[in-house]
Design a protein around this nucleic acid. Structure first.
Length: 487
RNA sequence: GAGCCAUUAGCUCAGCAGGUAGAGCACCUGACUUUUAAUCAGGGUGUCCGGGGUUCGACUCCCCGAUGGCUCACCA
């Protein structure tokens, strides 16, 4: 171990000293009877009782022959009162050499100090782990975001609100499962390593299997395997899992993130809208106790029903231009240019419409909103609308100006699906690295027959961000992807 | 990928027209048997992110690089 500073040297010295006296600085099992929060919560019943606690020392206030310390465990803190009369000279000598950050087990009596603080009068004290590195400062905590992400354990020790975020995250996962399980969905697990990365437009990570001597791709979506399960007759399935996309990192994008996808046979995208708004409201109630949340100073009301707006209507609302009357690529390009939206030469009508939507409409969609009927060109897995085959039965749900969910009535016509894949492959050949790849086995499955179905994907990280008022996706991922630092 | 900003003690931060660095917490020594950002007396513990350059002299100015943050691009 490298002794990086004097503070560590002092602690190492104490460690040797204690070992020399026969104290095991890395003790074993310790049976505790309560947690600190339980003591605060049930003080009336516990007052005068003897209990055992374990945790990390976060502050020490020495007063000669008596001292105070703050003990932190999984759910809170409690003050310890250690008196030489109660613990004896030997233990008191040990206590005086403890450092902030050391982990101890204590037994003692619950009481309230003269100043009114619920505390533990310690009779027995056991060192369970000597800490060799100094913790960040008690008042300001750890602010350096680089260190907070790289050394999340420190962040969790000294910034209590961080723990809360991940407790909410766990509640979100649990609520999503109980909501879907309660509606008869079956949770399944499909491969994370794909021979063809499908179901989304994104660049994949590539890895290699040695025994088979083949390249494999980390999945960029769950979609195609779950639809195979619809073919197999499972009818209502979902998977909550990690997705990997080899793309840029930003406050809204982490290379690996968590997504839930669900598919329901004999349903359509209208059913998915109903399901989503009910699910989000349920999850919010379970995770944070309310369907209204404050996000970045703005009140968001997640209570169903959410407004439903076609993409055309939304664009007209914010730009005054009705793209349903614009049918050629040229006209669309001119309209976009007039709005100041940048268009690239290769874009077709559908992509232009989408570009206008993203730049002119998306930022306005703060309150939960469904946007319906996306162009077929950007929706290669969605069923075409009967009234207008250039559009699809697809919606995206937006909250706080960001996409939360993407859903459609699933395309189950194998011939149309094959044509759409072929168009994607052509785009790929023309240099679009993110165009979908043709998946022959998926097409074969569709040829056996997939029931009409509604399907949906929801970004769990973004949902957690909204519920925890987080501005960066890194604040809701315990160990976000970071460039390694030279040691 | 581009622009802007940041990087100084273990942590949070000051500092400088260019003259080799400072506070609070933490830490060390001592006092103190109900304190709670305990208090009192004493002690500064440093690769000023790294490498070049300018200069008599660089933490400070210039160039290159590293890491991070924000914005934009990418992410249909």
């Amino acid at each position: 171990m490298e002794v990086e500073n004097d503070l560590m040297a002092v602690r190492l010295e104490k460690l040797k000293e204690l070992q020399g006296e026969g104290v095991d600085p890395y003790g074993g099992r310790f049976e505790r009877t309560h947690t600190t929060t339980a003591v605060h919560r049930h003080f009336e019943e516990l007052e005068g009782q003897e209990i055992a606690l374990a945790g990390r020392i976060m502050a020490i206030r020495g007063h000669g022959k008596a001292s105070f310390a703050d003990l932190q465990d999984r759910d809170g803190r409690l003050q310890l009162y250690v008196r030489i009369d109660n613990v004896g000279a030997e233990t008191y000598g040990l206590f005086r050499r403890l450092d902030i950050g050391d982990i101890i087990g204590v037994k003692g009596r619950v009481f309230r100090t003269h100043r009114g603080e619920i505390s533990l009068e310690v009779y027995q004290l056991t060192l369970l782990c000597k800490s060799l590195r100094p913790l960040p400062e008690k008042w300001h905590g750890l602010k350096d975001v680089d260190l907070r992400y790289r050394q999340r354990y420190l962040d969790l020790i000294v910034n209590p609100e961080v723990k809360q975020v991940f407790i909410i995250r766990a509640k979100v996962l649990r609520a999503v499962r109980s909501f879907l399980d309660g509606r008869g969905f079956l949770e399944v697990e499909t491969p994370s390593m794909h021979t063809i990365p499908g179901g989304a437009a994104a660049r994949p990570f590539i890895t290699h299997h040695n025994a088979l001597d083949i390249d494999l791709y980390l999945r960029i979506a769950l979609e195609l395997h779950l639809k195979r399960l619809l073919v197999g007759g499972l009818e209502k399935v979902y998977e909550m899992g990690r997705i990997f996309r080899n793309e840029g990192i930003s406050t809204k994008h982490n290379p690996e993130f968590t997504m839930i996808e669900l598919y329901q046979a004999y349903a359509d995208y209208e059913d998915m809208m109903n399901l989503l708004e009910e699910m989000v409201a349920y999850v919010a109630r379970e995770a944070v106790g309310s369907t209204t949340v404050t996000y970045q100073g703005e009140e968001l009301d997640l209570t169903p029903p959410w407004p439903r707006l076609t993409m055309f209507a939304a664009i007209e609302k914010y730009t005054g231009i009705d793209f349903s009357l614009i049918t050629t690529r040229e006209e669309a390009g001119r309209a976009a240019a007039e709005l100041g939206v940048e268009i690239e030469p290769g874009m077709d009508w559908g992509k232009i419409v989408n570009e206008v939507f993203e730049t002119k409409v998306e930022p306005h969609l703060k309150q939960p909103t469904f946007i319906l009927d996306y162009p077929v060109a950007i929706s290669p897995l969605a069923k075409r609308k009967k009234e207008n085959p250039e559009l699809t039965y697809r919606f995206e749900a937006f909250i706080a100006g960001r996409e939360l969910a993407n859903a459609f009535s699933e395309l189950n016509d194998p011939l149309d699906q094959r044509r759409r894949f072929e168009l994607q492959m052509a785009a790929r050949a023309a240099g679009d690295e993110e165009a979908h790849m043709l998946d022959e086995d998926f097409l074969r499955a569709l040829e056996y027959g997939m029931p009409p179905a509604g399907g949906m994907g929801i970004g769990i990280d973004r949902l957690v961000m909204i519920l925890t008022d987080a501005t960066s996706i890194r604040d809701v991922i315990l160990f976000p992807t970071m460039r390694p630092r030279e040691e």
